[in-house]
């Protein structure tokens, strides 16, 4: 009886092991792939931008500053179907350590300005200015890109500074996403 039990247990554990081993095998990669020599999609944004200083005013004020050149290079495989890309921009509110006053992201605006196209200049670029950078939205979109190309622009950031701000250095995080 004991021996039988032992055999049974052993069989069960072997079975369990087999199942355990078999599962990942059956869920293994089923798609055969091949390597491709492919160009990249890339984005460059100036490292950190200084937006200037502003005295505190009773009625609030508006700070306008240039962010620096944003460049998107598209060297992905081009063919008759062409390519397209979109750049989303968003920001977090301006905060300063130890200060309770903040400038909300909804008070930050983004103006694209002129887009300089290089390489495949016949492609179409659509630009959208943002009055609020609180949610990510498309600022520049390119379509019908038929050869390796790049696009560059120098956005203007407009910050509506509320009144009653404490004197400090406020920092915001501006995100550019290309996809």
């Amino acid at each position: 009886m004991k021996l039988k039990m032992r055999i049974l247990l052993a069989t069960m554990s072997v079975a369990a092991l087999t199942v355990g081993l078999a599962l990942p095998a059956s869920a293994a990669d089923t798609t055969t792939t091949l390597a491709i020599e492919n160009g990249t999609l890339s984005i460059t944004v100036p490292n950190a931008a200084y937006m200037g200083s502003q005295p505190n005013t009773v009625g609030g004020s508006v700070v306008t500053a240039s962010l620096g050149q944003v460049t998107v290079s598209d060297a992905r495989p081009m063919n008759s179907a062409g390519a397209s890309w979109t750049v989303n921009a968003s920001a977090t509110g301006f905060v300063a350590s130890g200060q309770s006053t903040t400038i909300p992201a909804s008070a930050i605006g983004y103006t694209v300005g002129t887009v300089t196209k290089v390489g495949s200049p016949s492609y179409i670029v659509t630009t959208t200015n943002l009055s609020s950078m609180a949610t990510a939205a498309a600022v520049v979109a390119a379509s019908s890109v038929y050869s390796s190309s790049s696009a560059a622009w120098n956005p203007t950031i407009t910050i509506k500074v509320p009144s009653g701000m404490s004197a400090a250095t406020y920092t915001s995080m501006i995100t550019h996403s290309v996809f």
């Binding site: 390597a35 491709i36 160009g39 890339s42 460049t71």
Partner: peptide, 19 residues
């Protein structure tokens, strides 16, 4: 016709399905 070499952060696919 070649744009300036990428001078930012770049991303590309290295493999695609054979089919």
């Amino acid at each position: 016709a070649t744009p300036a070499p990428s001078d930012g952060i770049g991303l590309r696919l290295v493999e695609i399905p054979v089919n």
